[in-house]
Amino acid sequence: MQAFLLYIDPGSGSLILQILAGGALAAGMFVKTYWLRIKSFFKKSDNSSHNTPK
């Protein structure tokens, strides 16, 4: 692995946090996307039921 040559100390904890935060935000996005898809699926079916003549 290549070592960082930096003039400020990034902090090991801060680097690790970014890996975790990146994962958490990606997971959040994933859940959100699917939630929107599920919602839009039900909305569509709702709409279609409204449009169906009785």
Binding site: M1, Q2, L15, Q18, I19
Partner: peptide
């Protein structure tokens, strides 16, 4: 610890 975390965060993340 810092050695373990090199090259593992994608640009998107």
């Amino acid at each position: 610890a810092s050695k373990k975390v090199t090259r593992s965060l994608s640009k998107t993340r």
